[in-house]
Amino acid sequence: MSEFLELDATIPESSAGLRLDRALADVFPDYSRSRLQQWLKEGAITVDGATRRGRDPVKGGETVSVRAALAPDAPSVAPEPIQLDVVHEDDDILVLNKPAGLVVHPGAGNPDGTLQNALLHRHPHLEQIPRCGIVHRIDKDTSGLMVVALSDRAHTTLTEQLQDKSVGREYEALVSGTFTAGGTVDAPIARHPRDRKRMAVVASGRRAVTHYRIAERFSAHTLLRVFLETGRTHQIRVHMAYIQHPLVGDPVYGLRPRLPKRADDTVRDALAGLGRQALHAARLVLQHPATEETMAWETPRPADMDAVMDVLREHDRRMAL
Rank of each mutant, 00 (worst) to 15 (best):
V64Q: 00
S15T: 10
V64W: 00
V27L: 11
R301L: 08
E298Q: 15
E216L: 07
H234W: 08
L321K: 04
P193C: 12
D85S: 14
E229H: 10
L279Y: 09
P72T: 15
R258M: 15
Q163M: 06
S166C: 05
L18N: 08
G168N: 14
P81G: 08
I93S: 00
E293G: 03
T10E: 14
M295R: 13
H88N: 01
L174G: 02
R53H: 13
V226H: 01
L96G: 01
F28V: 11
Q163V: 03
H105D: 05
V209R: 04
R225N: 07
G101A: 14
T294K: 03
P72R: 11
P188H: 02
P289V: 12
A270S: 11
A320K: 13
T266E: 09
E314R: 14
T222P: 07
A208T: 13
L284Y: 00
R301T: 13
S34V: 04
A307E: 14
H245Y: 06
V87P: 02
I134M: 00
F218W: 06
V87L: 00
H136R: 15
A25M: 02
H192P: 14
A220M: 12
P257V: 15
S219G: 02
H211K: 06
G113R: 02
D56W: 01
L228P: 00
L274V: 01
A71Q: 12
P302R: 07
R194Q: 07
H239Y: 02
R22F: 04
T159H: 02
H234E: 09
L120G: 07
A173N: 04
G17K: 13
R276V: 13
F227E: 10
A278F: 05
L70Q: 03
I11W: 01
E298A: 09
L40Q: 04
P289A: 14
D21P: 00
S32H: 04
P302V: 12
R206K: 14
T114F: 15
D250N: 15
R217I: 11
T210A: 00
A25L: 01
D139F: 09
D141H: 10
M309I: 04
P246Q: 14
T180N: 02
R122Y: 06
A220L: 12
S15L: 14
T294N: 06
L119V: 06
T230K: 09
G17L: 14
E89A: 15
T142K: 01
P193W: 12
V185S: 10
D85G: 12
E127C: 08
S76C: 07
P29L: 15
E3I: 01
G231S: 07
K140V: 12
Q116Y: 00
